[in-house]
Simulated assay, not measured.
Amino acid sequence: MGLSIVPLPKRIKSRKHARKVTSEYHRITERLHHTTSSDERAKCAAELQAIGGVDAYQQASQFNTALHSTSRWVARRLRAHGVLAAGKPPPHVLEIGAINTQLLDTPGLHVRALDLNSQDARIEQRDFLTLPLGGALEASGASRPYDALVCSMARC
């Protein structure tokens, strides 16, 4: 049995490279999702490996999101809809496909961040489809619906 050595993905240093990696990853995984051919599946797997796989995709996504404060945008939207307001309790937010900890670090929000391939210890590595119904848990143990869901660049 031979040992397969996979090179580490190149460090993402430019927006152009990051966009290329994320675009290719989505294009390939979309093909993979729709194919029933084992040959096409193997071809997609090889293409994913060639671009660095999920690790390169995560790195590219982190690079892209570091350039834009998505948490500020989310907070503005929550304020505009009256969910985040002075005098109101902090809203409970579920972030699906969390690529960074920006929302976790946003003052005034209670955030639960999930990702299938978490790259940070504060982001739960979990499929949100496996969550029990009902939302966040109160201190009493009762469930409470989330006030907002954030789902950016997550495949639905």
Rank of each mutant, 00 (worst) to 15 (best):
M1V: 13
M1G: 14
S4W: 02
P7W: 00
L8Y: 10
R11F: 01
I12T: 12
K20P: 10
V21Q: 01
T22I: 10
Y25I: 01
Y25A: 02
R27S: 01
I28M: 03
I28R: 02
R31F: 00
S38K: 15
D39L: 14
E40A: 15
A42H: 12
K43C: 13
K43N: 14
K43E: 15
K43L: 15
A50R: 04
A50I: 07
A50C: 06
G52P: 09
D55K: 14
Q59L: 14
Q59G: 13
Q59I: 09
T65N: 08
L67C: 06
L67E: 08
T70M: 06
R72H: 15
W73Q: 13
A75V: 09
R76Q: 15
R77D: 12
L78V: 03
R79C: 09
G82L: 14
V83K: 11
V83N: 09
L84Q: 07
A86E: 06
G87S: 08
P89S: 08
P91K: 01
H92T: 06
G97T: 00
A98Q: 02
I99V: 06
I99S: 03
T106R: 14
T106S: 12
H110K: 13
H110C: 10
R112C: 02
L114F: 02
L114M: 07
D115F: 01
L116H: 04
S118Y: 01
S118V: 03
S118Q: 01
S118E: 03
Q119K: 12
D120K: 02
R122E: 12
R122L: 11
E124L: 09
F128D: 06
L129E: 13
L129D: 13
T130R: 08
T130P: 05
L131E: 10
P132E: 00
G135Q: 06
A139K: 09
S140I: 10
G141F: 03
G141L: 03
A142T: 07
A142P: 04
A142E: 14
Y146W: 01
A148Q: 00
V150L: 10
M153I: 07
M153D: 10
M153P: 00
A154Y: 08
C156I: 07
